[in-house]
C-alpha cells in the first residue's frame, strides 16, 4: 500500500502541481527532482565505504600474507587453509555451535513461556515486563562481571548452598573446562531471553482473540489451546527470535571476554575472540581477517534470506 502511494507521489510531482505553483526554471526543477538523491548521497557513500568497502578491504587482507602490518600481496586461500587447520579455531567453532544451540533453544523457550504467562491478563504486567527485560539494558561486560561473581565456586552459589547444610554440593562450572561454556549460556540466556519475550508478546497481542474464543467454546483446555492453536500462529515471531538471537550468538564477544576470557584453557573460546587475539595479540593479521570473513559468511547466511523475506512482505500484502 505504502509502496503504491509513494509511487503516485513520484508521478504527480511536479507534474500535477505545476499549474498551482510559481513556474520554476528547468535547472531548479532538475535540482528539486534530484534533491532526495542528493540528500542520501553522503550517507550512501559512507555506508558504501564503511560497510562494503571495508569488507572488501578485510577480504583482501585475508588473501594476503599480512602479519603485524597489512601487506597487499596475494597468497590465494592459504590463510583460510591455515585457519581451518588451527585447532584453536576448531574449538572456537565447535564452542559456537554448542553455545548457539543451547542459547537459542533455552532463550526461545523462556521467552515464549514468560510471554504466554504475561499474556494471561495478569496484574502488574508492566512491572514484570520491566523485570524480565532489564538485563537487556546492561552491557555484556556488566553481566559478565556480575555472573562471574555469582558463579565463582569459592564465595558464590556453591558456597551459599553449602552453608545451607548441603556440604557436598558442587557447582564449579565457571572454572571447570568441561562445563565453563554452560556458564556463558546461563549469562546469555539471562541477558537476552527478555528480548525473545518482547517479540513473542508482540506476536501474541497480534493474534485474533476470536480464534481463541472459538477454541474455548469447543471445550479445549487452556494448555491445549496454546499448544495447538496459538504457538503455531507465532511462526513469524519464532523466525525473528531465532534469526536475531542467532546473529547475536555469532558475534558473542564481550560476554565471554568478561566472564571467562575464553578460558579455562580455551574451553569458552569463540570465533570473535579468536579473530581479536589473532589480529591484535598474536600478529596473525591475515588469519584474523580470514576468521572475520568466516563470521561474516555465517551472519550473511542467516540475515540475508531473512531481510529478503522481511522486505518483500509489504509487496506481497498488496
Amino acid at each position: 500500500m505504502a509502496f503504491r502511494l509513494a509511487f503516485c507521489l513520484n508521478l504527480n510531482w511536479p507534474g500535477n502541481s505545476r499549474n498551482d505553483m510559481v513556474r520554476r526554471t528547468d535547472i531548479k526543477r532538475y535540482f528539486a527532482d534530484q534533491l532526495p538523491k542528493i540528500v542520501l548521497a553522503p550517507s550512501g557513500l559512507i555506508i558504501l565505504v564503511i560497510t562494503y568497502g571495508f569488507i572488501a578491504w578485510t577480504a583482501s587482507i585475508s588473501l594476503s600474507s599480512s602479519r603485524v602490518m597489512p601487506i597487499y600481496d596475494f597468497v590465494g586461500l592459504e590463510q583460510f587453509i591455515r585457519l581451518w587447520s588451527t585447532p584453536r579455531w576448531y574449538i572456537a567453532v565447535k564452542n559456537l555451535f554448542i553455545f548457539s544451540a543451547l542459547y537459542l533453544s533455552i532463550a526461545t523457550f523462556f521467552g515464549l513461556f514468560i510471554a504466554i504467562l504475561l499474556d494471561q491478563r495478569i496484574r502488574a504486567e508492566g512491572f514484570l515486563r520491566t523485570v524480565f527485560l532489564y538485563p537487556m539494558a546492561l552491557s555484556f561486560i556488566v553481566s559478565g562481571v556480575a555472573w562471574k561473581w555469582v558463579l565463582n565456586p569459592g564465595l558464590g552459589i556453591q558456597n551459599v548452598v553449602r552453608s545451607w547444610g548441603w556440604t557436598s554440593f558442587t557447582f564449579d562450572w565457571l572454572v571447570n573446562p568441561n562445563y565453563a561454556l554452560y556458564t556463558v549460556v546461563i549469562a546469555a540466556v539471562w541477558q537476552s531471553s527478555g528480548f525473545a519475550m518482547a517479540i513473542f508478546l508482540a506476536g501474541l497481542r497480534g493474534i485474533d482473540n476470536s480464534i481463541i474464543k472459538a477454541a474455548q467454546m469447543e471445550g479445549a483446555s487452556q494448555v491445549r489451546i496454546y499448544v495447538s492453536v496459538v504457538v503455531p500462529m507465532l511462526r513469524p515471531a519464532f523466525l525473528s527470535v531465532v534469526v536475531l538471537l542467532g546473529q547475536i550468538a555469532i558475534k558473542t564477544f564481550d560476554l565471554t571476554f568478561a566472564l571467562t576470557n575464553g578460558g579455562p584453557g580455551g574451553a569458552t573460546e569463540m570465533p570473535s575472540m579468536f579473530m581479536f587475539s589473532a589480529t591484535f595479540e598474536r600478529n596473525q593479521m591475515a588469519v584474523g581477517a580470514a576468521s572475520a570473513m568466516m563470521m561474516l559468511a555465517a551472519v550473511v547466511a542467516i540475515i540475508v534470506p531473512y531481510l529478503y523475506t522481511e522486505l518483500r512482505k509489504p509487496a506481497n500484502d498488496q
Binding site: 578485510t58 546473529q247 593479521m285 551472519v299
Partner: peptide
Amino acid sequence: FLPLQAVLLPI
C-alpha cells in the same frame, strides 16, 4: 547486522 569483526582492521 554486520559483524563488526569484518570491518575492524580497516577502521
